[in-house]
Amino acid sequence: MTRLQLRIRDEFRNRIEDQATRTGVTLSDYVVAAVAEKLERDAEAANRIQLSEESRAWFFEVLEDTSPLPDAWAEAKNLAEEIEG
């Protein structure tokens, strides 16, 4: 276990404490739960890509593109063959 110290305004601390009391948990538990929830949301959001309506046509073009890969891949493959794994 490790300790985390925070510097926050008095009124903000009071708000957190009031809410923790209403919920029936300690101040620490309330803060940890709130941060854990935000961590989850942020981690999910980082890997959820939301494109705009304007990108719709472009998006389908990319999904449905079956054209051959550019020549750059052939040379790069030769280089990659020097690497195991």
């Binding site: 990108s55 472009w58 054209s67 550019p70 750059a72």
Partner: peptide
């Protein structure tokens, strides 16, 4: 892009 990747308009 040289490898055929397409830039996202967004």
């Amino acid at each position: 892009e040289n490898f055929g990747f397409a830039r996202c308009p967004d």
